[in-house]
């Protein structure tokens, strides 16, 4: 009896909280593990698609993590990648259909990148590294955490790219008309994907400045 109680962990024990919090900073999928860069460059020209993308990836990662974690003891190791792919692909199709049904415009902007969530390294990485070896509840938290870590960076990038590239935030013009009359112009480079990579670089720079643990020791 007493052993059973000791084994049962609190839902939000410090270990589980870490699963949620670490991907936001110390093991961020984009800035530390450098995964999912492709979609981070492609969908961040505006804030709206970036937010939708962040939510979609978070949901897919979380649910796929739970499903794989439930199945983990029944999956033959030799075909585990195929099983993982089937689960992720199913979820992505569901997300794609939902987006098409409710936010058609955004779905059009995201175009192929919703489908390409399947190939997002973050999801496969979490399934392989975490869900295959852990129980459903921690796997769920891990999926949410990594999705949020990915989404956080996406939203920061999109914020700066939309502000400097289009002069607006979430579609609302922020730069006053007088600025344009004085000669201010939106920065065309911000709309192009290469600048997203430089913004990612700046985020990594700032992050390492504040989190010294991340700097490699020579």
């Amino acid at each position: 009896m007493s052993a059973e109680i000791r084994e049962r962990e609190a839902l939000f024990s410090s270990k589980n909280i870490k699963l949620l919090k670490n991907p936001l900073n110390l093991s961020n999928p984009i800035t530390v593990q450098v995964l999912g860069i492709c979609s981070a460059l492609a969908v961040t020209a505006k804030l709206e698609p970036a937010i939708v993308m962040a939510i979609s990836v978070t949901l897919v990662t979380a649910v796929a993590n739970v499903v794989i974690s439930v199945l983990r003891n029944g999956i033959p190791p030799r075909i585990r990648i195929i099983v993982q792919l089937v689960v992720v692909a199913t979820l992505v199709i569901v997300v794609d259909q939902i987006l098409k049904a409710f936010v058609y415009d955004v779905s059009k902007q995201l175009s192929v990148f919703v489908g390409l969530i399947i190939t997002n390294c973050i999801i496969m990485g979490r399934l392989e590294a975490f869900a295959m070896a852990n129980k459903p509840w921690p796997s769920f938290l891990d999926g949410i955490g990594n999705g949020l870590g990915y989404g956080l960076i996406l939203i920061v990038i999109a914020f700066f790219r939309e502000l400097l590239g289009s002069g607006s935030i979430y579609g609302f013009n922020l730069i006053p008309e007088q600025f344009y009359e004085l000669g201010y112009k939106n920065n065309g480079l911000m709309i192009l994907p290469p600048m997203a990579l430089i913004v990612v670089g700046v985020i990594i720079w700032v992050q390492r400045y504040y989190t010294r643990d991340l700097i490699e020791k020579n």
């Binding site: 112009k185 920065n187 065309g188 480079l189 911000m190 192009l192």
Partner: peptide, 10 residues
Amino acid sequence: AFLFFAYPAD
């Protein structure tokens, strides 16, 4: 290059 891509009109 920055000027060329950022402010092509100028």
